[in-house]
Every structure is written in structure tokens, then in C-alpha cells.
């Protein structure tokens, strides 16, 4: 995943534009954002959350944020990691009630939905539900980092698109 910077390419930054000049003053931040993407989507040590699961959840979160370009990127990662029918359903935004998945994947998907759409309402009970579904504590932290990162990234892209539009 080196060479291109995902945020800059999805925000549609044109080389030499006024905004591209401003972004180049923050090039370190863009590089660290890309490294963060690789750390949460393609970690060397994925623990109990496979690359395919991470990609499917990222598609779902990009969808809740209304970013089809970002969703398409993560769908590509899902294809590379090995898409299954249940992960395709997670990615498609299927409701939890109709998701034909085991209790663990349903709990994970439910948590990602909370962290994306209603984070202010999250409580200790949500973490207890993940533990009850069999998630190890390191995987609970990994899941939070994944959801938190995608929700960071999608906002940087949204902000840059607006700025490009107005400048």
C-alpha cells in the first residue's frame, strides 16, 4: 500500500492546486494517516480480526458515512483478502437481524455500527457484550482502533472535498 496516498486521491486533490499546496505543508500528517490505514486494515499481527473482516467492516462504516469512493476502496481490499458471502453481507450494510452470521461476527458488527453512528451512547455494557461473544481484550482494542481510524479518515476526506469546492 505504498506510493499513493488514499486521503489525497479520494479527496480528488489536483496536483498544483491551491489546496494541494496547503496539504503539502501537512505532508507528514498525510503520510502518517496512510501508515495508520495500513496498521489497522493490513496489520502484520491481525490478532482475532482477519484482514477480510477488517475490510468488510470498513466498507460498512464508509457506507454509513455516505462515502461511496471510500467504500469502493475497502471493497477492493475485501476482494484481495478473500470475500465470503457473510462478509459481503456485512459490507453491504445488511441489518443485524438478517445477518446470517455467528454470534461473534454479529457482536462485532453491532459494535462497529455503534462506534460509527451512535458513539455518544456507548457504555460499558457494549464492551461486556463483546466479551460475552468471546472477543479477547486485545481484539476489543483492535476493533475500536479500526472503527476510530475509518471515522477519522472519512472526515478528513469530506473536509478536503468541501475545501476544494470552496477555494
Amino acid at each position: 500500500m505504498s506510493g499513493t496516498n488514499l486521503i489525497e486521491s479520494l479527496a480528488g486533490l489536483k496536483a498544483g492546486s491551491q489546496l494541494a499546496d496547503a496539504v503539502s505543508e501537512r505532508s507528514g500528517i498525510m503520510e502518517m494517516s496512510q501508515a495508520s490505514h495500513d496498521a489497522v486494515l493490513l496489520p502484520r499481527e491481525p490478532g482475532g480480526l482477519s484482514h477480510a473482516e477488517r475490510a468488510a467492516l470498513a466498507v460498512r462504516m464508509a457506507r454509513w458515512n455516505g462515502d461511496s469512493g471510500l467504500a469502493a476502496h475497502y471493497r477492493e481490499l475485501l476482494g484481495q483478502a478473500g470475500e465470503t458471502s457473510v462478509l459481503a453481507a456485512v459490507a453491504s450494510g445488511a441489518a443485524l437481524e438478517v445477518l446470517d452470521a455467528d454470534a461473534r461476527l454479529i457482536a462485532i458488527t453491532r459494535h462497529v455500527d455503534i462506534l460509527t453512528k451512535t458513539v455518544k451512547d456507548a457504555t460499558r455494557a457494549d464492551i461486556e457484550a463483546l466479551k460475552a461473544a468471546g472477543l479477547a481484550e486485545p481484539d476489543i482494542v483492535r476493533l475500536a482502533e479500526l472503527a476510530a481510524f475509518v471515522n477519522y479518515q472519512v472526515r478528513v476526506i469530506a473536509g478536503l472535498r468541501l475545501l476544494e469546492e470552496v477555494l
Binding site: 489546496l19 496547503a22 496539504v23 501537512r26 500528517i29 455503534i114 462506534l115 458513539v119 455518544k120 456507548a122 457494549d126 464492551i127 476489543i140 482494542v141 475500536a144 482502533e145 472503527a147 476510530a148 481510524f149 471515522n151 477519522y152 479518515q153 472526515r155 478528513v156 473536509g159 478536503l160 475545501l163
Partner: peptide, 22 residues
């Protein structure tokens, strides 16, 4: 300056999701 505001609000989209949920 606007870019920095986008970044500071967005990085708290990250930090909040760790600190408030873990």
C-alpha cells in the same frame, strides 16, 4: 488554517471513539 481545523476535529473523531468507548 481550515485544513488544520478539519484535521483537529477529525482526529477527535478517532480519539473520542477510543476514550469514550474503552
Amino acid at each position: 488554517e481550515i485544513l488544520d481545523l478539519i484535521l483537529s476535529a477529525s482526529i477527535f473523531g478517532w480519539a473520542n471513539r477510543l476514550m469514550h468507548t474503552l
